[in-house]
Simulated scan of single mutants.
Amino acid sequence: MHPADSAQADKPGVSGAILRFDIPADALGAHDPQLSAVLAKAGALAAAQKRPTVIRVTALGQDLRYINESIWKGVPVHSSNKPVLENLTAGANQTYSVSIEPLQSGG
């Protein structure tokens, strides 16, 4: 690992995100099939990365199960590189979002 890589790894934020998108509240409320498909594709994309990834989901607690299940549908059952799923509870006026980022190893 190059020194520049480790300096970059220590910076929080979305700069290193592989993918990030907001979830429209109306699509989520309706459990829109297109939203389900996009979430599944996000799961597949995360599993297809060469390095381990973390999928961060920001939403209200009652919506996390639906979002998580939709994401896992895209992850191949026998994937050797299963992403880590991290749920963050959204505040009242916070936008729901999904981001896929490289998993930062603790070392």
Rank of each mutant, 00 (worst) to 15 (best):
L35K: 01
G106H: 14
A59D: 04
Q34W: 02
I100P: 06
Q8T: 11
S36I: 08
L19G: 00
S97F: 08
E86K: 14
I71D: 01
L28D: 08
A30R: 14
V54M: 05
G61L: 14
V54R: 09
A40V: 04
V84C: 05
L64Q: 15
P33R: 09
A27G: 02
R20S: 08
A92S: 12
I100T: 03
A30D: 13
S15I: 11
T89I: 15
A7T: 09
G29M: 06
V54C: 05
N87L: 15
D26P: 06
A9W: 06
G43H: 08
T95I: 06
P12W: 02
L88D: 11
Q8H: 07
S105F: 12
A25Y: 09
P24D: 10
S70M: 02
N87A: 14
A40W: 07
V57W: 00
G29V: 01
S36W: 03
N68K: 15
N81C: 07
L28I: 06
K11H: 00
D26S: 12
F21V: 01
V75L: 04
A40G: 12
A7N: 03
K82Q: 15
A9R: 06
H31C: 01
Q62S: 12
P83I: 01
L45I: 08
S80L: 14
D63P: 03
V57H: 00
I100G: 02
R20P: 03
H31F: 07
K41A: 11
Q62G: 07
I67S: 07
A47Q: 06
H2F: 06
T58C: 14
V77E: 15
M1I: 01
H78F: 15
S79L: 06
A9G: 02
A47E: 07
S15L: 10
L88G: 00
T89N: 09
S36Q: 11
S6L: 09
E69P: 01
R56K: 12
P3F: 03
Y96K: 04
P102V: 13
S105T: 10
A46R: 02
E69R: 15
P52D: 00
P83T: 00
A30W: 00
A47F: 04
A48T: 00
K82A: 10
L103W: 08
V98P: 01
P83R: 02
V54D: 01
